[in-house]
């Protein structure tokens, strides 16, 4: 092909993120370009470095494209973080993906040296407990819970539990032996890590309401992007439009549904909070939003305004 791209990411070649999302997207770009583009995917950090280095690799042109978790480089994407917040993110990954595209003009400034192809989220953090049921925030009091990001840690603190930061691969033994009492993580992680064997309870709010989420990006080196002829740029844009963003939401939702199905089939209890219980959680988590607004104020960001915009945009695309 005329235009070769290297896409670097941190998960394995067999992960759903590669097979269900990155490969189809790369193929769509290639087709839209009429075969002028070829995207070679390099999984598992095969081009060197560690996951937190992905952003600088794309920015410096070490690779052309990356897929990464925004939270791996905390502090770099404070505005995008608004979509991770509980009560801003509830239960609709497709709507959130589309809302992030709508707000891109507000967010793009923090993607320095990068051209965003698309942003997305996963289906949202659920609570997965080793041996205790959770119906109200008080049930989490004093429990040790594994967290994924700094906003995740704030949620856990707001709920009266103790956050434990821990790399994902160490979660199963830690759960099994009671190093942590539970984890803050979506259902999609259940099959690969066999979490159903180490937990008894999976907890989420009414209508699959979750406790915040994680944001991801697929981005290109800015110089590389600017040097591309318009018809090639169009191919990337065409493959990353609204239909695709909705599709990405559906992909992550499906992985999540598969995970919870597996857990329930193996005898776990899937707790869906009642409307009142869900409201009690959302009330307890409201201070997290305030804390974030306060935190980003230090960077000169109008957090309250962003929260409002993010909520409105998500609502505009909501299908549920």
């Amino acid at each position: 092909a005329e235009y070769e791209f290297k896409l670097h990411h941190f998960l394995s070649a067999n992960s759903p993120a590669q097979t269900k999302m990155l490969e189809p997207w790369a193929k769509a770009v290639e087709e839209a370009s009429g075969g002028k583009v070829h995207i070679e995917i390099y999984p598992s950090m095969t081009l060197g470095g560690r996951p937190p280095e992905l952003v600088s690799q794309a920015r410096d042109g070490v690779v052309d494209l990356i897929w990464t978790v925004n939270g791996y480089t905390p502090g770099l994407f404070p505005r995008t973080e608004v979509f991770e917040l509980p009560t801003v993110y509830r239960n609709d990954p497709a709507a959130t993906n589309l809302a992030m595209a709508d707000l891109l003009p507000d967010l793009a400034g923090e993607y320095k040296g990068l051209e965003v192809m698309f942003l997305h989220v996963h289906a949202g953090q659920g609570i997965q407990m080793r041996d205790s049921a959770v119906h109200m925030p008080a049930d989490l009091m004093g429990k040790k819970i594994r967290v994924p990001t700094r906003t995740g840690a704030w949620v856990i603190e707001a709920l009266g539990a103790a956050p434990v930061a821990m790399p994902v691969p160490e979660l199963p033994p830690a759960l099994q032996k009671g190093v942590v009492d539970g984890a803050f993580i979506p259902w999609e992680i259940i099959p690969p890590l066999k979490i159903q064997d180490q937990t008894e309870y999976q907890i989420e709010g009414k209508d699959e309401t979750r406790f915040g989420t994680t944001t991801f990006q697929v981005s290109m080196n800015k110089g590389r992007w600017d040097g591309l002829p318009p018809e090639i740029q169009d191919a990337f844009r065409a493959a990353s439009g609204p239909d695709w963003l909705a599709e990405v939401g559906a992909i992550w939702r499906a992985s999540d549904d598969f995970g919870i199905k597996l857990a329930v089939e193996s005898g776990n209890t899937h707790i869906v909070l009642t409307e009142e219980e869900t409201a009690a959680f959302e009330e307890a988590m409201q201070p997290v939003v305030d804390r974030w607004v306060d935190e980003v104020k230090g960077k000169g960001i109008d957090g309250a305004g962003l929260v409002e915009k993010a909520r409105a945009a998500t609502k505009a695309h909501a299908t549920r």
């Binding site: 937190p52 600088s56 939270g71 480089t73 905390p74 502090g75 770099l76 320095k112 990001t149 700094r150 840690a153 956050p163 930061a165």
Partner: peptide
């Protein structure tokens, strides 16, 4: 670019 650690910043 203001790279910081996750929890303690």
């Amino acid at each position: 670019y203001d790279y910081t650690t996750a929890i303690l910043q």
